[in-house]
Simulated scan of single mutants.
Amino acid sequence: MKKETRLVDAGRRKEWTGKVVNPPVYHASTVIFDTLADMKNAIRHREKNHLYYGRRGTPTQFAFQDALCELEGGAGCALYPSGLAAISGAILSFVESGDHILMVDGAYEPTRSFCDTVLKRMGVETTYYDPLIGAEIRKLLRPNTRVVFVESPCSLTMEVQDVPAIAKAAHDHGAIVMMDNTWGTPLYFKPFEHGVDISIQAATKYIVGHSDVMLGTATATPEHWDQLREMSFQMGYCAAPDDVYLALRGLRTLGLRLKQHQENALILARWLEEREEVDHVRHPALPGCPGHDIWKRDFTGSCGLFSFFLKQGSEKALAAFLDGMQHFKMGFSWGGYESLILPVQNIARIRTATPAPTSGPLIRLHVGIEHPDDLIADLEQGFKRLRAN
């Protein structure tokens, strides 16, 4: 099936839906067994989408897990209450005291904080590496390197990583490759076809698509699924049925929304390239973005998230630029239908392996599905305020 059809059909097996279109929302903790034999059978098959206990899942969660595996690949999908929980839960499932991990220097800032605090307390050492290192990552691998973590493109600075080259070096060494695939989504990047062992997504973002749910997923290859599933269960991770239902509903329009996000973002990114106030634009689909050739090779599309650097901007000027926005709202996260703007004035504080790309303020945009003319007009007025201050 084509991806558009898969988005409609995935996770809609009759055993989950019955005779209705969408899987019902099951609110459950306790599951009742009619006989001792039924209970023993459920215990034996608790890892195979059998009703056993609410934290193990119900048909609502099973349907979403099925859908993610069908869309992204992998042997199984674990659910978490947020994207960060999926990242931390996946890493914790495969490391122990004395291990070493390699983390991309441009990672999502909370991922970095998790490595620098929780993992450090556990006795797990983290080394940050240049996002553009490619196959040369082999020089950083140690005998105790357990996990190599990639995020492509990077969270703020948008470098596109050579995931296949990194994965080959890691696998030759016996390390596991985990990827934050939230930007690419299951539609625009196929992690398992590029050597990834565990693909992680903040379903909070494009899968849900409406800025009203916190949800994370981690999908694993057959070799790593059993350990991911059991360790996540032992740590108590699960996802609320109402949130999962909204994620299932979001999947159905993911393709349509992404097309509009992609189109609008490219219009704005090209417009920003011509602005005298802008030092440069970081959009993976534009030739000037680090790793653009890799993006062309490995990705089948782009989304609404990208960044640009201002040439300069005092605190007063930056406030004037941001405070008067009508359509671009200031806020964290991204992936919803609405446009967002986020300033980062000191990118150097969250880079240790590589220098900050420029000294000017970084502005991250998430371009929503509003009309691009209105979004351009909003930014135009912002630049006027910036210049005046």
Rank of each mutant, 00 (worst) to 15 (best):
L140N: 02
A203G: 10
D130C: 08
Y129D: 05
V196M: 12
L119M: 07
P191D: 13
R142T: 07
T185A: 01
Q201T: 12
P191Y: 03
V160L: 03
C115L: 09
T157V: 14
C154M: 11
K139S: 09
K205G: 00
V150W: 10
Y206W: 08
A203D: 03
N181K: 10
A203T: 11
G209D: 10
M158I: 04
F192H: 04
I137S: 03
H173T: 07
D172F: 03
H194E: 15
T126H: 06
D116S: 10
G209E: 09
I137V: 14
A170H: 01
T127I: 01
L156H: 15
A167L: 08
L132P: 07
D162F: 10
Q161D: 07
T185L: 05
Y129T: 02
A135I: 12
F192Q: 06
T204N: 05
I207W: 11
E125G: 00
P131I: 00
L140R: 13
H173R: 08
K190E: 13
T185H: 09
V177P: 02
S199W: 02
P110M: 13
M122L: 15
E193H: 01
K168T: 08
A169V: 02
P186M: 09
R142H: 14
K139L: 03
V148F: 04
Y206V: 00
K205Y: 09
T185M: 03
D172G: 14
K120I: 01
R112G: 11
R112A: 12
C154L: 08
R138V: 11
D180V: 06
F189M: 07
A170N: 04
T126M: 12
G174C: 07
F149G: 04
V124L: 14
A167V: 06
P153H: 07
L132Q: 08
T204E: 05
L140G: 00
T182V: 10
A170T: 00
H171F: 02
P153C: 02
M158Q: 15
T157Y: 14
F114C: 13
H173D: 07
V150N: 06
C154E: 15
K139V: 00
P164H: 06
V160P: 00
G184Q: 11
V150K: 06
R121V: 05
S152P: 06
I166N: 05
P143A: 03
T157E: 15
N181I: 04
H171C: 01
D180M: 05
Y206Q: 11
G134I: 12
T111K: 05
H171A: 01
A165C: 08
K168H: 06
P186F: 13
T117H: 08
V177C: 02
P164K: 10
K205R: 15
F192N: 05
E151G: 09
V148E: 02
A203P: 04
A169I: 03
A175G: 03
L132I: 02
